[in-house]
Design a protein around this nucleic acid. Structure first.
Lengths: 345, 345
DNA sequence: ATAGCATTTGTTTAGTAAACAAAAGGAGAT
DNA sequence: ATCTCCTTTTGTTTACTAAACAAATGCTAT
């Protein structure tokens, strides 16, 4: 039935609209009535039009989500999972496909070029901090497609990024403990390769310094790598020394979970003997025993913002690179004792 | 000649365009050819059309720039001057009028309502930090027009704001001094009501803490208020004590100017006896003797970003409030000695 | 004066004509 | 067969509009 190669103008004629309209539908630009969009797509399917056999990629515009190969489970990770959900949702709304790209840290460079992926992608979000080194990001930058970092910043590079207010989060949780009267505070920090964890630590230190306090080295052990339950070993190390602190700040919820395990094993009660506080407000944190006092980092919103920023960069807007910082919020539950009274009202 | 009341449709007819086009020209929406814009405006002037005799304000959409009454010279201030210049430029580009609004701190509330200004303004930028208290901002918020803070943030309120990377600026300048071998460092801080100065201070402290240092109280005097040359008194206070530090960090360029004056008066040389470093990179800082090593805060860009953000808020976009932080940059000149060799190559 | 209807105003949505640029096709020369 | 140059077709962008809509205004009958 259908004559030779279908073109936009053919579609336009068949659907009784202008070629411009067909183009707008395909590139899902706003300002076309839903029923018209429907009709045009139907016509496209009917005549079997092959989208853009010419220039770029294949389908609609797509954006890349870059994560390190070994950390694939990041997608199911509570923290990044939420970010990615926001990212994906917003991508759909704006008509982007999200293509998952990975790179191999061991080889040191990003072999996306070889796979031709970059050609098809109009921008990147780098979603996993720490494992991606500054050098790699510089490599990526040379591809001259827009890049947005999420929950990571490399100040020397002045890249656009979207991060939580990690400094304030650290500051808030520390102030909360100080206000409850704690002075013997231990801190479970994370690897320095994660800029977000460094910022949190600085926030904690700032609050302590303002109160004239300093954490003794023995109560701020080095983070252990390659252990499943991050805070567990660190907390155990602290408890094995004679006297124990009255409160512990865990740099992330996951660290707190490990710490709580270690505290319980030592036969101590939370929060009566040791108060536990952390940062992240992952879903699980509400269901530990006792529920964890933590600081919310708006993960979903960060994903949304990251895509919006990338979108604007692709459009050639937002020429001034900035850090976009989402507000954090103290969530008082019961692991520090503070909320017990209030929550029982 | 001209018949009765001119209307958009009359203009349209006379200028041989559609009413829609006339409307677009008046509201200076993009996508109209310059010569057409010209012709339409000519016709409007010709027929003597009175813009919007109906609904809102009078002229084009306008945005408010809120400063405290007493600080009117802020407009000629080197720091805020640049911000306002960026703001105004971007406003023009997007077709806003900038109306200068003031409030009286002594009365405590903002009597903009009475003057009916708020009715005509579709958004506000609060451009002077410190003098505007959180309470006032809350009042402003209740007017339910969009607000953007510039070089200020109130974390409890989660307002959209545009600020320099003050923490990093403090961190960078301090690291620079540490790298040059300085250990006897004094710090001229500012009033705590300025959130930006607090952030800078925290950045300095963080860098020092990471190097295991702490500034003795005698070398971090309280800021004096109501003095023209801010750093002068503070610096004098430091120098009057027996031994002097090998370096001073001034929290702002203006403070550094005062400090340099005091150092010279004491018969000491910069940088040989005392190195001076600060934050702001105002224009003057390049022309002091010796030229001041400082950290650039992109002031013009902040103005541009503030208006862009306000514009988006007015359009109903940007529903997630964020802190927008522009990158700072260390500017090495000669007041710390570091650049002398380099600059002579 | 005033409630109800009709008209005129400004405004918004959903489009299009025409110009443009990049790629593809085609004709003639080598 | 292959290469250059020209034409045409294809996708894309700009500049603009018809028609529908809502808010204000005028108009009429009470």
């Amino acid at each position: 039935m259908g004559k030779a190669k279908p073109t936009m103008r053919k579609i336009a004629e068949a659907a009784q609209v202008s070629p411009t309209t067909v183009w707008m539908v395909i590139h899902n630009k706003p300002g076309i009535a839903p029923q018209t969009v429907q009709r045009v797509w139907a016509t496209i399917a009917d005549l079997g039009y092959k989208l853009k056999p010419t220039a770029n990629g294949g389908q609609a515009e797509s954006v890349g989500l870059l994560i390190e190969q070994y950390s694939v489970p990041v997608i199911s990770d509570v923290f990044y999972g939420e970010i990615i959900r926001g990212f994906q949702t917003e991508a759909e709304r704006l008509g982007y496909h999200v293509v998952l790209s990975m790179f191999d840290r061991s080889t040191g460079n990003i072999d996306l070029l070889k796979r031709g992926l970059v050609q098809k992608v109009s921008g990147f979000v780098v979603a996993n901090d720490g494992d991606i080194t500054p050098e790699m990001v510089i490599q990526l930058e040379s591809l001259s497609v827009p890049i947005v970092l999420v929950e990571n910043h490399i100040d020397e590079q002045r890249l656009p990024c979207v991060v939580g207010d990690n400094f304030m989060a650290g500051y808030q949780i520390t102030r909360h403990l100080l206000k409850l009267g704690h002075r013997q505070i231990a801190l479970l920090r994370g690897p320095t390769k994660y800029s977000s964890l460094v910022d949190r630590l600085r926030g904690c230190m700032a609050a302590l310094a303002e109160a004239g306090l300093l954490i003794p080295a023995k109560w701020m052990p080095k983070p252990v790598s390659g252990h499943p339950l991050k805070g567990y070993v660190q907390m155990k190390e602290i408890l094995e020394q004679g006297e124990h602190p009255t409160a512990v700040i865990a740099i992330s919820d996951k660290t707190a979970f490990g710490a709580m395990e270690a505290i319980r094993e030592a036969g101590l009660r939370i929060p009566d003997d040791v108060a536990v506080a952390s940062i992240d407000n992952t879903l699980e944190s509400a269901y530990t025993r006792p529920p964890l006092t933590t600081v919310n980092i708006p993960k979903y919103e960060m994903g949304v913002l990251a895509l919006q920023k990338l979108h604007r960069l692709i459009q050639g807007e937002d020429t001034i690179p900035v850090k976009t910082i989402v507000y954090s919020e103290l969530i008082v539950r019961e692991s520090c004792g503070a909320a017990v009274l209030q929550s029982k009202r």
